[in-house]
Each structure stands twice: as C-alpha cells, then as structure tokens.
C-alpha cells in the first residue's frame, strides 16, 4: 500500500511539479465519471433495454439524447475546469498545533461569463474536502486550513481541487503542490519570563523604570515661569487652584536576554516552547530582549519584526546547526 502510494506520489511530482501558480491543463487535470455519472450510464442502459423490448423509438431517442449529453458533459466539464487558474497567496507562519491558513486565489478573466463556473471542492490529498467554493460568486481568496504538526519548515500536502460542473456526471480533479515557505514555530509552553541581564546568567531582575517623557499624563507640578503655556492645567486654574504645570512620562524598558542553554536533548522541545512563550510575552509588553541559542544569537531589540526573527530562529533550531 505504502509502495503504491509512493509510486503515485512520484507520478504526481513528475506530472504536476511544485509551483506557486497553476493554470490547469491537460497535464494537471484528471477526469472520470463520477458515481452519479455511472448511475446515469446504468440508467441509460436501462432505458435502452426497455426501449428495445418495447420497440419504442421515443425511449431510444431519449436514451441516445441522454448518452450524447453525457458525452458533451465530458467536454464541458474539462473545458470549464481548464479555465481555472489558481495561486497561493501570502502565507503566515504558525505555531505547532495551530491551523495555518492557505489563501488560494482564483484568477478569473474580466468577463465573468468566460470564466470557470460551478462549485469547486477544496481539500488536501487523501483527506475529505474541506469546503466548497462557488466560482460564480467568487470571493478571493479562499482559505483552507492546515494543522502544523511539526516544528520547522512545512512541506504542504497537495491541495485537491475537484469540480462536478456542469451536471455532476464527471468529476474533474487535480492535485496541486504549492510551493510554500511556511514555518511552524514551536508550540508555546506557558512559563514565567526569565530574563537575564547578562548572557547565560540566571538572575532575574526588574525590567522597568519610569522616566520623564511625553507620552502619558503623569502628575501636576507647580508652574514655574518659562514652562510652555500649553502645559498649564487650565482647568485647575479656572477652579482657582492656582497655576499648575502638567507632567508627562513614558516607560522605557531595560533589555535582557533569553537563554536556551543549559538544556538537554530530551527537554529541548519543551524548552523551545517556553522560549517561544516568553518571546511572545515580552513582545506584548514591548520590552527589549535578546535571544541566545548557543550557536546563534539575536541582539536585543523589540517589536514585531524582532519577534518574528526570534520565533524563526526557534523554529529552525537544531543542535547540528552549530
């Protein structure tokens, strides 16, 4: 069974190689009568037998009409499916255990009557279809979800598109291999933040201090001549409480380091998960921090870009990388 599957996969790889965008064509489209198509053929045979036995030409005509309709359906189904052009949109990295969204964009010609019609079922190879997408009321992109199971770069399974348009007699389908660079970050493991001021020192310390700034209103102070009039608390003045000047402050964070080491191989995944959680937590607080993975260090910084860099490093981490 596994062998067969391997052969099939190799066949698919050759026939439909990995790409970002696909215009479906004779190479990528498979077409075969659907279950209903077979039922329909049996029905035609039944009508034929009945018509012959009763020597009834109208029955035979109906039968032949239905058969020729079947034939036409083959072409209509194929041509319709071959109009589909689909590409993978922007993907985002996800944590292990979360569902990564794959946005698929169906490119349609400007004239909607010329484009593909009907329902398209989307899903992954060897899985049941996840959703139905109606090409006639096309709303790009169509998102199918994919559960990230392992840390690191993700190899997407093939995406199966199938359509029964126009009459369900034929199933057109294709298995598309989209090129992706989705990374699965380690699954965050809740823990307390352990920031060290020095690399690899284990002492936690206070990470915040207040400093005079301009962001937030902090307190009132006696007005001293020379201070800008705009800072005067006019409301207090109007109440006759005297001239006060508003003081503003902003919080400034102190940078520290997150350390992977010491760590043994068997707790590596947990440790990475904890670091992952801490990176998220610190970014949420807007703090400066650096990440030390032994052979790979990321200098202290803050912000979403920094977070992404750290998470990517965690996702790609392996001992041998050193």
């Amino acid at each position: 069974m596994g062998k067969l599957r391997q052969i099939y996969n190799r066949f698919l790889d050759k026939r439909i190689p990995v790409a970002r965008q696909f215009q479906l064509n004779h190479k990528s489209i498979f077409i075969f009568p659907s279950k209903f198509g077979w039922l329909y053929l049996v029905l035609c045979l039944g009508i034929f037998i009945l018509g012959t036995n009763y020597q009834n030409n109208l029955m035979l005509l109906l039968c032949f009409f239905l058969v020729s309709l079947f034939l036409l359906n083959l072409f209509v189904a194929y041509l319709n499916f071959a109009k589909i052009s689909v590409q993978l949109g922007k993907t985002h990295n996800e944590f292990v255990g979360e569902r990564a969204q794959l946005p698929l964009w169906f490119n349609l010609p400007k004239n909607s009557t010329q484009g593909p019609h009907g329902l398209v079922e989307l899903g992954f190879l060897r899985q049941s279809a996840q959703l139905q997408h109606d090409l006639d009321s096309n709303q790009n992109p169509v998102k199918i979800a994919f559960v990230c199971e392992e840390r690191g770069p993700i190899k997407l399974p093939r995406v199966t598109l199938s359509s029964f348009y126009p009459m369900g007699l034929f199933r057109c389908w294709t298995h598309l291999a989209f090129e992706s660079n989705i990374l699965a970050y380690p699954k965050p493991v809740p823990c307390s933040v352990q920031l060290t001021s020095q690399q690899q020192s284990l002492e936690p310390e206070s990470t915040q201090s207040q400093e005079s700034g301009f962001d937030d209103f902090d307190s009132l102070k006696n007005y001293r001549p020379g201070e800008p009039l705009y800072h005067v608390a006019w409301k207090q003045f109007a109440k006759g409480q005297g001239m006060y000047s508003k003081q503003f402050s902003s919080s400034v964070s102190v940078s520290g380091w997150l350390n992977l080491i010491p760590c043994s191989a068997d707790v590596l995944e947990v440790k990475l998960g904890q670091l992952c959680h801490q990176v998220n937590e610190l970014t949420r607080r807007g703090q400066h921090f650096g990440l030390d993975l032994g052979h790979h260090k990321i200098e202290p910084d803050s912000g979403p870009l920094h977070q992404q860099r750290c998470l990517e490093a965690l996702a790609r981490f392996s001992w041998s990388a050193s």
Partner: peptide
Amino acid sequence: FSPTIPFTRLNKRLLIMTLQAIPIGILLF
C-alpha cells in the same frame, strides 16, 4: 452544481447543450 448562476444563464447553457446533444442523439438513433 452551479447554484449562484442566474436562472436565465442556466437556461441558455442548457439550451446550448440540448441543441448540441440533439444532432448527436439523432445520429446515434
């Protein structure tokens, strides 16, 4: 199989297919 196509377009599609199928059916007959 194409639930949101307007009904008139549906009719047109069927008309085209029927007109195509009839000569083939008669040939077979």
